[in-house]
Simulated scan of single mutants.
Amino acid sequence: MDFNWDPEQRAFRATVRDFLAAHLPADWEDLAHGPGSEAQSRFSTKFCAELAKAGLLVPHWPKRWGGREADPWTSFILAEEMWAAGEPRGGQYMNVNWIGPTLMRFGTEAQQERYIPPMARGETIWCQGFSEPEAGSDLASLRTRAEKDGDHYIINGQKIWTSYAGHADTCFLLARTSPGKTGLSVFLLPMDTPGITVRQIPSVIGEGDIHEVFFDDVRLPASALLGTEGQAWEIARTSLSLERVGIPRFALASKMLRRAVSKLQKAGRFGGGAVEQAARAQAACEAARLYSYQIVDQRRHGAPTGPEASAARYATVMAERLVGEFVVEQVPEALAGGDPLLLAHHQRAIVAGIASGAAEIQLNLIATELLRLPREPR
């Protein structure tokens, strides 16, 4: 792997940084707290629309859908800079990273024409309806049902921990259409459909970030089915592989670590155990970055992404945790109103091991699919 950025890549990174400098408002540090809040959601819609006009929202997408077919490195550089700034795209990073590309692969012509252009213009927010009260990362245990009724489906059930559901226009919904592990399907569900109830879950991870969603006899046309019945596993594997490496949380973690260290240095408190702890956290951030780069390089050369994506995801989780622990132990005043950005990162780090599949699930995938370790007999 060549560890040097070429001139075009350096120029693109500079362009993104210039855009951020010109478009992030003076109160951005306060807005960054609570990426699902009303204020941040309103801002992200305006921000993404400006990104789109500048050609910086979906440069890696096909030209047909508003992109310029840039390589995977371009999209990752964009994601790095956005996350280092506190992710001003809000929930729309999901559209850019995986929902849009998944629809391009599995969607019908009508579905693509309906949903992809608003994403490319930065006008829409989606949510992901996967986790349930009794089925978190164990998707095979999903109970939300979608029963066929003529040319419609009737959906009943509940989702939980659904990010951005309170502001989302559409839900990327996983539901059961038949018994058994393979009886799962994906639906594109407008959130204004009658029968949907969204309730915010109060939490310590930020204002308006997570919700529970109830479906009571929600009537959905059969044309909302993505792919075919029972194809959810193939679709979910595609989308999750894009999501797990498409979120460079390590970029924000590393920046927040430097921010915390700077505070300690100014206060004359950066020495001894703090230096050692910061070094471990920075090493973890670098390991996550390089592991993610390996996956991006595979994509750049057309190689399929396998369980290595889970390893890269887990490395990022560990980087987030170590930086979060450093801030809690060394700069606790920052979490008590002393620094909004450090607080925002701490809140995001809390859920780093849950989003995109629980950390424990990633370890199971690494053990069985990457290391080929035998399963213990039951």
Rank of each mutant, 00 (worst) to 15 (best):
D2L: 08
D2I: 07
F12V: 05
R17Q: 14
R17V: 12
A21F: 00
H23E: 15
D27T: 03
D30L: 12
L31F: 04
A32S: 14
P35T: 03
E38G: 08
E38D: 11
E38K: 11
S41G: 09
E50G: 04
K53Y: 06
A54C: 12
L56I: 08
P62G: 07
P62V: 07
P62I: 08
P62K: 09
G67F: 03
A70G: 13
D71W: 04
W73S: 02
W73H: 14
T74I: 14
A79K: 06
W83Y: 15
Q92H: 04
M94G: 11
N97Y: 01
I99H: 05
P101Q: 01
F106Y: 15
E109L: 14
E109S: 15
Q111S: 00
Q112T: 09
I116G: 04
P118A: 03
E123W: 03
T124Y: 01
W126G: 04
C127E: 00
P133T: 02
A140T: 10
A146D: 00
I154D: 08
N156V: 01
G157A: 10
H167C: 02
C171P: 00
L173C: 03
L174H: 09
S185P: 12
V186E: 06
L189P: 07
P190C: 07
P190D: 12
M191G: 02
M191Q: 06
T193N: 06
T193A: 06
I196S: 00
I196Q: 00
V198E: 00
Q200M: 10
S203F: 03
I205A: 09
G208A: 10
E212A: 05
E212N: 00
V213E: 05
A222F: 00
E229L: 04
A236C: 03
T238D: 15
T238Q: 12
V245P: 05
P248C: 03
K255P: 01
K255H: 13
L257N: 08
L257R: 05
R258H: 15
A260T: 12
A260M: 09
S262I: 05
G268H: 07
G268A: 08
A278P: 05
C285T: 14
A287M: 08
D297C: 10
D297S: 15
Q298T: 07
Q298H: 12
R299D: 01
R299H: 03
H301F: 13
A303C: 03
E308F: 06
A309F: 06
S310L: 04
S310M: 06
A312N: 07
R313K: 11
R321C: 05
L322V: 01
G324P: 04
G324F: 02
E325V: 06
V327F: 06
E329C: 13
E329L: 15
P332M: 10
G338W: 12
G338V: 04
H346V: 01
H346R: 12
Q347N: 03
Q347F: 00
R348I: 09
A349P: 08
A352S: 15
S356R: 10
S356F: 13
L365D: 11
I366C: 13
R372A: 13
